[in-house]
Design a protein around this nucleic acid. Structure first.
Ligand code: SF4
Ligand code: SF4
Lengths: 140, 140
DNA sequence: TCTTAATAGATTATAAAAATCTATATTTTA
DNA sequence: TAAAATATAGATTTTTATAATCTATTAAGA
């Protein structure tokens, strides 16, 4: 019932990158240091975000990462789903078949279906526009 | 980001017990069979719920469990917290001190504080009155 | 006193999360 | 063109949490 550290790190890294000036890049090392995230773990995270199309990367001495689109066009849900896969608040609550065989008659399932909709809506509503360079004074 | 099986089992067990007629008891074996929950695991769960004051138990041949109070007076939150401890949607989001040192300046924390309030409110609102004997035709 | 319950608590097994490691590819610049 | 700094790929390891089971004991009714 708790967000993984991986997703938490990812959200903070993307928030950091959102604050870059247009055209700027941030390297793994810089982000890791600024946000206190284990460097190698962050490398893995940014790699996955890049592969998923959330970030764009550049290799070489002046390399690093930037967003693939505007901050306001990237949602918390986008980032969380790259890290954890589809959000499922309880085992059964998605469209796929699951191990539990009670799905049809289950008393408590409808409650979780509803709560899942709520939380997904909230994750979708929250985007990184709130952290963009013009919204926050300076990078730490 | 997913409810534990333990909590899911617990909710279904309490829902089952909520459907008993006044004065009736249900044994571990009966509930486990009816709901497809591993018997020994359920024994542990019901033990904990009893110790926490959600259920009342009776030993001996005619023993079993009943609710400690009216179904509508037991919430999903009550049961979930006995199983998993305090609900925390992300590491930092509670009153205690946590490992992450970013708490004060963290950009994303306020979002999770808010979402946590939402989900806790929903867990508190949902009670077992909805499953009481007079609401549902018969026990399966 | 036998049987069928719950209780207590330790233990094991499995899986997921978190982190790290090794090696390679790419780009800049001295 | 060699060195340095960067990202990429993927495997591996470590750690922790979840899930489940086991052993022994206590309690009460028939
Ligand atoms: S018991 Fe109900 S809520 Fe739980 S996993 Fe199965 S269908 Fe879903
Ligand atoms: S980084 Fe922010 S949201 Fe994440 S655990 Fe730390 S304070 Fe909480």
């Amino acid at each position: 019932m708790q967000l993984s550290r991986k997703a938490d790190y990812a959200l903070r890294a993307v928030a950091y990158i959102s604050q870059l000036k247009k055209g700027d890049l941030a390297s793994i090392g810089r982000i890791a240091k600024a946000r206190g995230i284990p460097r190698e773990f962050l490398a893995k995270i940014l790699k996955e975000l890049t592969r998923a199309g959330v970030l764009v990367s550049f290799q070489g001495v002046t390399g690093g990462y930037r967003l693939s689109r505007l901050p306001k066009e990237i949602t918390f849900l986008d980032v969380i789903e790259v890290m954890e896969g589809p959000v499922r608040i309880n085992l059964c609550v998605d469209d796929r078949h699951c191990a539990c065989t009670n799905e049809k008659s289950c008393e408590i399932r409808p409650f979780f279906v509803k709560q899942q909709e709520q939380i997904i809506r909230a994750f979708k509503r929250q985007n990184f526009g709130a952290f963009a360079h013009n919204k926050i004074s300076k990078l730490a």
